[in-house]
């Protein structure tokens, strides 16, 4: 027992202030996510990206929908809003338009953003709404126990596709690009630094930014597809290739070839608000911006 105590002392050095603790509601940690869940590293890279971007934290807001990833809003020490299933983006849209000084980050899961919230996603992208949308893609509905999602690979097993998924999944970067997103990137939880840099870039640019993050769901997805968490991570390591500016059409996340990661789209197009101000509120539009 005395030995254990000594060990603990050694490892923490009596110093337990994690570098991200200032951005966490530490009174709510440990979080609800399962051991090995990929939301944690995604969330952590997001927070590091926000910090690195240098944006004013007092005017930075996180909006989440429902599901495991949606709980992120409850752990971040920023103004944070945990809304209804699929509706984080329109909520965030109202917030951004009401107070354009806010930096609004939408952090949610694939089920929330692309099935029930799919319509909102494509329209916010089309409008080039000034939002940073981070999607934790764990290929299934984790919170409800592992049901098929719009991102579940073909023939993968979930509780609602016990013999395999007969459907085909979305290629999220292609969907985002086709809908009009002006910044599109994809990383995995293993690519923490790249992910952080993409978040940083997204935070400091205007327009609709979308970052997909492939993340393991060991308990609900991995278990049913005979994939141990370290196997999933190994897959992210050996079966991915980084191709910045790759054509979004080649980015299907499942299939025979490697999964393509990178920053695919980064273009300048006027955001909704700047177009609106120019057209309808010239009295408010700052001269020479964008």
């Amino acid at each position: 027992m005395a030995q254990t105590a000594k060990k603990q002392d050694q490892t923490t050095g009596g110093f337990e202030h994690h570098p991200l603790d200032d951005l966490l509601r530490t009174d709510r940690i440990p979080h609800i996510w399962c051991p090995g869940c990929g939301i944690g590293p995604t969330f952590s890279a997001t927070l590091r990206g926000i910090l690195a971007s240098g944006v004013d934290l007092g005017s930075t807001v996180m909006v989440s929908g429902i599901g495991c990833s949606g709980r992120a809003a409850g752990y971040v020490k920023l103004d944070s809003y945990h809304t209804t299933h699929g509706r984080a983006i329109p909520f965030a849209t109202g917030m951004k338009l009401a107070n354009p000084k806010l930096n609004v980050v939408v952090f949610s899961g694939d089920g929330d953003l692309f099935a029930i919230g799919g319509n909102h996603f494509i329209h916010a992208a089309r409008r080039n709404m000034d939002l940073t949308v981070i999607c934790v893609n764990n290929l299934n509905y984790g919170m409800t126990g592992g049901q098929a999602a719009a991102t579940t690979p073909h023939m993968a097993k979930t509780t609602t596709t016990p013999k395999g998924n007969p459907e085909r999944p979305f290629n999220l970067p292609l969907l985002a690009f086709a809908a009009g997103a002006t910044f599109v990137a994809r990383w995995t939880v293993l690519h923490g630094r790249d992910l952080m840099e993409s978040v940083q870039a997204a935070m400091t640019r205007r327009g609709f930014s979308f970052i997909e993050v492939l993340a393991p769901c060991p308990i609900n997805y991995g278990r049913r597809n005979k994939e141990l968490p370290l196997v999933t991570l190994r897959n992210y390591q050996v079966n991915t290739i980084i191709k910045n500016e790759a054509s979004p059409a080649e980015l299907a996340a499942s299939g025979s070839g490697p999964i393509v990661l990178g920053r695919f789209v980064d273009e300048n197009r006027e955001s909704f608000l700047s177009q609106y101000d120019k057209t309808y509120r010239p009295q408010l539009a700052p001269a020479g911006k964008e």
């Binding site: 994690h18 570098p19 991200l20 603790d21 966490l24 940690i29 440990p30 979080h31 996510w33 051991p35 090995g36 869940c37 990929g38 939301i39 944690g40 590293p41 952590s44 890279a45 590091r48 939880v189 293993l190 923490g192 630094r193 952080m196």
Partner: peptide, 10 residues
């Protein structure tokens, strides 16, 4: 620190 899901190591 980057891979830890729990903010438990740095």
């Amino acid at each position: 620190e980057s891979i830890c899901p729990e903010f438990a190591i740095f």
